[in-house]
Amino acid sequence: MRETLKDLWNFLRARKKWWLLPVILALLAVGALLVLTSGTAVAPFVYTFF
C-alpha cells in the first residue's frame, strides 16, 4: 500500500496533475470502506450511503 501511494504521489508530481489527487483519494477511501465492510454488520451502512 505504501509503495503504491508513493508511486501515485510521484506520478502526480511528474505529470503535474494535482487536480486528480482528491478524485483518487476519494476513490481509495470508498474502496477501502467497501473492502473493510464487506461481509460485516457495517455493510448496510455502505449500501444506504451509496
Partner: peptide, 11 residues
C-alpha cells in the same frame, strides 16, 4: 472497483 482493488496496485 477493478482499479481500486487490483489494477492500481499492479506492482
Amino acid at each position: 472497483p477493478v482499479w481500486i482493488k487490483e489494477k492500481l496496485f499492479l506492482k
